[in-house]
Structure formats: C-alpha cells, structure tokens
Amino acid sequence: MTDLWSLFLSAAFVDNMPLTLFLGLCTFLALSKRPESALGLGIAMTGVLGVTVPLNWLIYRGLLAPGAWTWAGMPELDLSYLSLIAFIGVIAATVQLLEMLLDRFFPAVHASFGVFLPLLTVQCAILAGSLFMVDRSYGFSESVVFGLGSGLGFAVAVVMLGAIRGRLAYADLPAGLRGLGIAFILTGLMSLGFASFAQMAMSQ
C-alpha cells in the first residue's frame, strides 16, 4: 500500500510530466490561458491517462510482451515491436470516447477544448505514460496508480499555470512578453520549484 502511495506521489510530483519531464508542453501552454479550460484539460488528462495506461498494460501483457503466448505453446514469440502502434490505437479510441462523453454531457467544456481534444491523441505525455509503464515493468495495480498519478500531476501543474496566467491578464507586461513569452518563463520558474520535489525524494 505504501509502495503504491509513494509511486502515486512520485508520478504526480517528482516525475511531473510537464514540469520535470517537459512532456505534453503544447497543450500545457495552449490551454492554460484561463483556469477553467486548464481545469478541463487537467480532468481530461487524468481520465485519459488513468484509462489508457492500465488498458495498455492489459494489451501489452496479454498479447505483446515476450512470453505472452506461452499458453499457446509459443514461449519465444515477442510481439513487443507492435506496442507503439497498439498504444496509439488505444489512446486514439479513448480520446474519441472522451470526446463523445464530453459532447453529450458537458457541451460547454467540449466547445472550449476545440481542436485540442482530438490533439490529445498525439499528445506526448499520454503516450509517454504507457511507454514508461512498459519500461519500468509496472504491475497492473501500479499501472493504474501511475496513470492516475501522472494525470493528476499534469492537472495540478496546468491549473496552477492557468491561475497565474489568469492573474497576469491585469499585469502590465512588456509587449514582447505577452502571451506565450511569459508562459514559457512561468513554466521554467514552476519547473525550478518542482525540482525541489526531486531533492526531497533523494534525501529521503
């Protein structure tokens, strides 16, 4: 139990997707202009990561990993070269499903996403979640916790950035820094802050 809890914390904070690993920055910057759309993105990321990582775990372990076909008398068969394409397929289907759910139940949130929702299909943080899961040989429950943890970490980071950018709307910035310029600087500063989590993890 404590193991899972610390995996959750490290996925959310120590290995924070956008701020420590710099993954998924395009949506991170694009949808953090206002706190509401940032919150929407955070929830969507948590949902997609929380679903795709365990789902991909099942597919990887059940069909693709070396030795997955031992029961059929083919222990040396290794289909792991298919994992990338299989993962992308699963992610695409999940995003479409999410899109339908949002369209049906939260049309306003759906409209605020615009084209960025389908773009989650090729968002690097989401694919990275599944690839890390394979790379680090997580078990099923670990993959659930890891998926939810990194999604939540993304959500926390993007909501924070969204809140700061929302306040900056009233700041008198130099013209060249308005918009993306200051967002990059903020991301850098926040990432310095998140680096302290790594220190804590090490000194434990």
Binding site: W69, M74, L79, L82, G89, A93, L97
Partner: peptide, 27 residues
C-alpha cells in the same frame, strides 16, 4: 511472428472501432 502480429493489430483495431461505434450509438 509477422502473421500473429498482423492478426493482433487487426483484431485490436477492429475491436476498438466496434467498441467506439457501440458507444456512439448509445451516447
């Protein structure tokens, strides 16, 4: 490896598409 690989991918894609269609008609 190649045969089974192709089968697996095809099965996966068909499965996903059917799942999506089913959800779509529901939602």
């Amino acid at each position: 490896e190649i045969l089974l690989g192709s089968l697996v991918i095809m099965g996966l894609v068909v499965g996903l598409a059917m799942g999506l269609l089913a959800f779509r008609s529901r939602l």
